[in-house]
């Protein structure tokens, strides 16, 4: 968020540098069940972001002192691979990835029926293979598909997307240039069946009016991405369904 820039990110016709309109998110592709060892997994692309998510559990909680006798805990590890960004990222956790891991775990806690598995741990691993702004939302979106794929009881699936402001316009799902040279970024995740907010961050500079507009855009896009999440999960079993119809 550098704020001040004379870079043109939205042209006079309201078109963005990657050809999107202000209220358009980048193309989303989701695939469930892509890894063999993990109990559940998902691969997600949104624009130039490429993300893998894997879920193990519920399983015995390590370290033991984190066990909760009343419910399972969700432990999340968000990691950017060294080659996922333009300057090589030094391997290992940094303060940013620790924070993102925490808020993603908290967002997922709201929908997972953790009370069914006291003392256990549900482990969520998010690997960013390629980053182009919006990886925390992409990671959370993939992680909730992986959780459902793992057969973990949950109330709903969580979609996430960011909205923000760049070149003076409120825009949905900022790409890397808009994020780098824009004025504000608002990642949002919701529970679609109730429209509750489970993840919200904001940085930059926005008026109340701009913020409300950004949230409206993000809510709308979350519901669209939610449909893609559900389709990805159902497609995993589509083959067997066809076999059945053949008979």
């Amino acid at each position: 968020m550098s704020g001040q820039t004379d870079m043109v990110l939205v042209d006079k016709k309201g078109m963005r540098i990657d050809g999107r309109k202000a209220d358009e998110h980048r193309p989303v592709h989701i695939e469930a069940g892509v890894l063999s060892n993990a109990d559940g997994s998902a691969y997600l692309e949104i624009g130039k972001n490429k993300v893998l998510a894997a879920v193990y559990g519920p399983r015995e909680c390590h370290p033991r002192h984190l066990q909760d006798p009343t419910k399972a805990i969700i432990q999340c590890k968000y990691n950017m691979q060294a080659f996922s960004v333009s300057d090589r990222k030094r391997p290992g956790p940094d303060r940013r990835s620790v924070e993102i891991s925490k808020i993603i775990a908290e967002a997922l806690e709201k929908v997972v029926l953790t009370e069914l598995y006291p003392r256990a741990s549900i482990d969520v691993y998010i690997e960013i293979l390629q980053a182009n702004a919006g990886t925390r939302c992409a990671g959370l979106t993939a992680a909730s598909v992986a959780l459902a794929d793992a057969g973990i009881p949950m109330r709903d699936i969580v979609p996430a997307v960011a909205a923000g402001k760049a070149d003076g316009h409120v825009l949905l799902d900022l790409n890397k240039e808009e994020d780098n040279f824009g004025q504000a970024d608002v990642p949002l995740a919701i529970v679609p069946s109730t429209d509750e907010i489970v993840l919200l961050q904001m940085d930059g500079n926005m008026t109340r009016e701009e913020f409300d507009k950004a949230i409206d855009l993000a809510f709308g896009a979350c519901h669209e991405i939610y449909e893609k999440q559900k389709t990805a999960l159902k497609e995993r079993y589509a083959v067997t369904k066809e076999d059945e119809e053949d008979e």
Binding site: A148, M154, Q229, E244
Partner: peptide, 17 residues
Amino acid sequence: QKRNARPAREIVVPGDL
């Protein structure tokens, strides 16, 4: 004639009505 055959099992995901 596939379209006539209605799948006997409906796959649902968390949150589906």
